[in-house]
Design a protein around this nucleic acid. Structure first.
Length: 280
DNA sequence: CATATGTCCTGAGAGC
DNA sequence: TGCTCTCAGGACATAT
């Protein structure tokens, strides 16, 4: 489930294609949803174009082309952006052939096909992802900004952290990890959190995301997520609560990790050290 | 306006 | 062993 650390790892894995030119495009398998324009137009619009920059926008990898056009990879659950051979031939979706740089090909692979690759003009980009569509990036948002954007919400903090319009990049896995390290109960309403709790959430958010980037993300037991070289991430070995239901708490050793469902998503937490009240 | 729910998708794993 | 069923959750559309 690529979230900010996994998508940032993908971005870094293909960052060296900045400055290269696209010399070929092949759509490898029918994608009903992912690519919004017909293959011939995709090839015509991409061939010969130079990649100006490789960026990350929340959980998307963005190739910025000249004249404001952007090719946007949105992996959702099982999408991968690769420079090495993909895990299987079967789920390859798109291949870009490049010249003028160190990387000859970039692939988009997606087993479940919930993800997408979209080519957007400047105006399409602004309409879909511009001002107001995404909050500030979770890696760089200030504590005051985070608090300002969420403190009037009555939603549980775990649910609110997944709202990409509030803050961009956090997904289901890291939301549980962040709140555990901050010692905050996932069901605590945003509007009832103290200043100290906001500081803890903000600090742990950035600490967890930075550490997870250093480990190149989390490859869960299904083994789907890989970096651009088709290698596993390492942060799954450092999860303190995610997918550890029934195990004892690594932080306080008193509680057992509990799984609950919030907004149709699994939440993991320790009932002993994540209290609804502020820690003294 | 804020919040909640349904939808898409495939393959791993559970249970019989 | 082999079948059927459930579940995983990102973003968006639609409903309340």
């Amino acid at each position: 489930m690529p979230e900010l650390p996994e998508v940032e790892t993908m971005r870094r894995g293909i960052a060296a294609i900045a400055g290269s030119s696209i010399v070929g495009v092949e759509r490898l398998r029918c994608q009903r949803r992912p690519i919004l324009i017909e293959p011939r137009a995709l090839s015509r619009r991409l061939t010969g174009r130079r990649i100006a920059a490789v960026e990350r926008l929340g959980k998307r990898v963005v190739l910025r082309l000249e004249e404001g056009e952007r090719l946007i990879f949105e992996p959702r659950m099982t999408g991968l952006v690769l420079v090495a051979d993909p895990p299987t031939r079967e789920h390859l979706r798109l291949r870009l052939d490049l010249s003028g740089g160190p990387i000859p090909h970039v692939w988009y692979w997606d087993r479940r096909g919930l993800g997408s690759v979209r080519l957007l003009t400047e105006s399409q980009f602004m309409e879909r992802l511009g001002n107001g569509h995404l909050g500030p990036d979770a890696l760089t948002i200030s504590c005051n900004k985070l608090r300002e954007r969420l403190e009037r919400s009555r939603r549980p903090i775990k649910v609110a952290l997944l709202d990409q319009r509030a803050v961009a990049g956090i997904g289901n896995l890291y939301a549980s990890e962040i709140l555990h390290l901050a010692g905050v109960h996932p069901a605590k309403r945003c509007d009832l959190l103290t200043a100290l709790q906001w500081q803890g959430i903000h600090a742990q958010m950035q600490a967890v995301l930075q550490l997870a980037i250093r480990y190149e993300g989390s490859t869960l037991s299904d083994g789907t997520y890989r970096n651009a070289l088709n290698q596993s991430g390492g942060f799954q070995n450092h999860h303190r609560v995610y997918d550890r239901a029934g195990d004892s708490c690594l932080t306080c050793s008193r509680g057992r990790i509990t799984r609950v469902v919030q907004a149709q998503r699994a939440t993991f937490f320790c009932p002993a050290c994540q209290t609804k009240r502020p820690r003294s």
